[in-house]
Design a binder for these strands. Structure first.
Lengths: 351, 351
DNA sequence: CTGTTAGCGCCTTCAC
DNA sequence: GTGAAGGCGCTAACAG
């Protein structure tokens, strides 16, 4: 890049600096800085007015890079979505979460950067190689081992990290967990199914052992085993969570067993896959068999039929992450090492 | 903030600088800089290796703020979504677009910041008050007057701006337009509906005045009014685009009017909302009434019924925006002042 | 290929 | 309440 071109690349043209404003307003640049940063009581009303006038007249805008360098503070948070897909943002949960995070941060004049990344490339990503942000938020994915490895890499950066939807053993004062109450969600599922003529229950569980799913099943089990009815519970390992794996394993199961009165898919996609199969086989949902999912988002309202599910507050999770991060920046520690958000049931047409 | 706290806020602890690495590797800091920036041919293999070793050993990470300040270059692009809703990112189109943009930028080691904002607050937002990014991308909203006012404000910053889904008169070398061919998409809708026994058409339109939607309707109108059939066209203002608003307004409409032979939802969500309502009311789609949407995304392909829609490449729009911005940074101008992406029809079960 | 010098624009510190 | 000095960490420009 030749000189001329470099200019346009970042700042373009000659911009006024704090010094220019200071000279024009007949004050020192320190006073201008005080005005910009709204330091209360440090500038007289008259001076402030004059400075503000010159800021407008000279079209002054603060250079964030210079501020950050001098203040050793980035005023910025990075959001990482660990996702192999290039369309990393198309997941409903993630977008709500990001929106909540962005809104909180921007209201506090913080910047939020976002990037999708996969765990293999994390090592030589910008995140690891340079310091752009004051803290990181991350939505993990992959197996438990993969997730924890990524987490370890991030924590090695000695920057505050907020992790969504993940349980972590051991304490780390630079780590903050934000997740939904899967255990209670499982209890909600149990309570609802009990009210719907539950005789026996088939649980569709992926073989990948996610703590969130374990918690759901634990809550569900507990409610059912303490009930009058004591329904028979069968857990079907579906292999992966994929549409076809769920359908294949359920199909095999139904070949050798009678139709259960209710089916619980550990997430909405699995529930949905089972509904389609059941329909193909001539069963009526919910008359012949009731089906329930988990993690309903507004977008799933568009599905036909409308699935009975448990809804979590992704937007709120993002907000809490943002507030936690801001609090860390002011105080040096997170207000809570873990926040567990409540969930609620969403009644649909499948139970 | 006391001193101790400030440290954690941004950088935490004492980090190694380029100088530390230089000293440890027995070279000047300039050589380290050359290694970091992979300047080809500027460093001998042996030296490079020694420097890289020290970088790892000392856990060195570059301070982006210092680099940006010195180089007068932000290595960063801001994406603004002009949307009153706090959930500004929940829209499918926007998320695909953002994903495409982020991927291109991140691959080039650029950072993407994102924020939702409403036009009233733009004036005293960070974007206007400070320089964080080298360029801006924006998804506008509101009336045409509001949109152009926002655009004018952004262009006054003398930074490159990429605008999505907006037509602008007059030339500006710092402005780049990227949009899909909504007009042609509208024509595709019209052509398809005409082939499906079209008698009268109800168009579901949100009250928020998006130019893209106007163009869709214009193309549709033109095809229909030039046809032999000359079907009656009614436009129903649904209020917001929300599920419930669409259903409520359509329900009211049907109370007072006969069922149209076809319905066009200005986007997929609106079309789905109407399908659910029509079913509840006992109508068969597509036998009694044909329904078509617009902006089909992959997520919608799994829905039942599979909606007939027009597919646009939001992801690609984001990519093009990113590439255009990078090109501007290298050359000082955009490769194209306007890019119009083609659309295509996707046949489903609803027509 | 490597080193030296200088300074990007701002804010911290301390003086008055 | 305001000002002067100094330096954050990096890279441009130039010298060797």
């Amino acid at each position: 890049m030749v000189k001329e071109l470099k200019k346009v690349a970042g700042l373009a043209i000659k911009r006024s600096t704090i010094k220019d404003v200071a000279k024009a307003a007949n004050v020192s640049s320190m006073t201008v800085s005080n005005v910009i940063n709204r330091r209360s009581g440090f500038v007289s009303y008259k001076t402030r007015l004059r400075v503000e006038q010159e800021i407008v007249r000279l079209n002054y805008r603060r250079q964030t890079a210079a501020r950050n360098l001098r203040a050793s503070h980035q005023h910025s948070v990075g959001m990482i979505v660990l996702d192999d897909s290039p369309k990393f943002l198309t997941d409903f949960f993630t977008t709500e979460l990001v929106a909540g995070l962005a809104n909180v941060l921007n209201n506090a004049d913080y910047t939020m950067t976002i990037q999708g990344i996969n765990s293999r490339n994390l090592g030589d990503s910008m995140i690891m190689r340079s310091i752009d942000v004051g803290g990181l938020c991350i939505m993990l994915s992959g197996t438990e081992a993969e997730r924890l490895k990524v987490l370890e890499q991030l924590l090695s950066l000695k920057q505050p990290v907020v992790v969504f939807q993940q349980e972590v053993r051991g304490k780390n004062k630079h780590l903050c967990l934000v997740r939904q109450d899967d255990y209670y969600g499982g209890r909600l599922v149990g309570g609802h199914l009990l009210s719907k003529d539950l005789k026996d229950l088939l649980i569709l569980r992926p073989n990948q052992n996610w703590p969130a799913i374990e918690n759901r099943i634990r809550g569900l089990n507990e409610v059912l085993s303490n009930s009058m009815i004591q329904p028979k519970i069968t857990i079907l390992d579906t292999g992966s969570e994929s549409f076809s794996d769920v359908q294949t394993s359920l199909n095999n199961y139904l070949d050798q067993n009678s139709l259960p009165s209710s089916i619980f898919g550990c997430n909405d996609q699995m529930a949905y896959a089972s509904i389609l199969l059941l329909r193909d086989k001539g069963y009526n949902v919910p008359k012949d068999v009731r089906v329930m999912g988990f993690n309903g988002f507004e977008a799933h309202r568009h599905l036909i039929p409308n699935l009975t599910s448990v809804i979590s507050s992704a937007y709120k999770m993002g907000q809490i992450a943002g507030e936690s991060m801001l609090s860390y920046f002011s105080n040096g520690y997170f207000p809570n090492s873990e926040t567990i958000l409540s969930v609620k049931i969403s009644l649909g047409d499948t139970t």
